[in-house]
Design a protein around this nucleic acid. Structure first.
Length: 267
DNA sequence: ATGACTGGAGTTTCCAGA
């Protein structure tokens, strides 16, 4: 089983790159963030054998799951926890396929630090843990994938001293992300590469940041223990960030052993 | 030259992104 998460920063602009990614990587699930559209036509995906699920709005935010399998029990926003949070309805989309729950998340940016929006971001991550506590257990197969807008550790940013206290690397953000994960989630990339430095998923469009590898690791696949046991590989597809008209984020690709793989090996 | 961004909304400039 292959899962990819990618903040596309406008589906309309990145549509050809999304199609290439599907064709080349053949993921079972492709999680998108910042689609920035109200509607995505499902026909093109159906032709490739994918189902499309999308929760978006006009101009900003927007999350999608492109899935080889039909999803049931779709969950949008803080459903069953905080129905009044309208923004979250364009930032959280989940669904179930058999015994697997999969979510595409776009955590608010929260800039500037200490603004109301910053505390909304902190609350957003706190409420995600509440959502998990209320509806799930860590013994289930759960993938929370997406743009968390938080670099968890000093090795996840290009200059920890420079960036300390800045947005996406502020102590309060890292603390609440850790609190979320303490429910029973593992950072897939760190399961396999615990201390490797210089692995980033976002580079500023300005200052030739990508060329100089001045990035941050903001996009994550957080998984429960049953998935940690069958995790095989995690990579960041940095090639896509070097294409013309790139998103400022690169896709994170995770491969898991599953029954399909085992059957293929037997045959 | 010692700097150089992108996308959307909606009109030619602002806001948000991180």
């Amino acid at each position: 089983m292959r899962v990819i998460t990618w903040n596309v920063n406008s589906y309309n602009i990145r549509k050809p790159q999304v199609e290439s990614l599907l064709k080349e990587k053949e993921p079972d699930f492709l999680l998108l963030q910042e689609t920035k559209v109200e509607f995505i036509a499902p026909e093109g995906f159906q032709k490739r054998g994918y189902y499309l699920y999308h929760a978006g709005g006009k101009g900003r935010n927007g999350v999608a799951i492109i899935s080889k399998y039909p999803l049931e029990e779709l969950k949008i926003g803080f459903q069953g926890l905080d129905e009044d949070d309208q923004q979250a309805k364009e930032r959280i989309l989940g669904g179930r396929y058999k015994d697997l729950w999969i979510f595409s998340l776009y955590v608010p940016n929260g800039s500037p630090v200490n603004s109301d929006y910053f505390y909304y971001k902190i609350q957003f991550l706190y409420k995600l843990r509440e959502l998990l506590e209320k509806f799930f257990t860590p013994q289930e197969k759960i993938i929370l994938g997406g743009d968390f807008n938080v670099a968890p550790e000093p090795e996840d940013v290009f200059d920890p001293l420079l960036l300390e206290g800045q947005i996406c690397f502020h102590e309060r953000e890292r603390k609440v992300l850790k609190y979320l994960m303490e429910w029973g989630l593992y950072d897939a990339l760190r399961v396999l590469y615990p201390h490797k430095r210089g692995i980033f998923t976002w580079w500023d469009y300005q200052f030739s940041s990508f060329k100089r590898n001045l990035g941050m690791r903001l996009d994550h696949l957080l998984i429960t223990n049953p998935l940690k046991q069958i995790l095989k590989e995690v990579v960041v597809d940095i090639k896509i960030r070097a294409l013309p008209k790139p998103s400022d984020h690169a896709p994170v690709i995770a491969d898991f052993e599953d029954r399909t793989d085992i059957e293929e090996r037997i045959n």
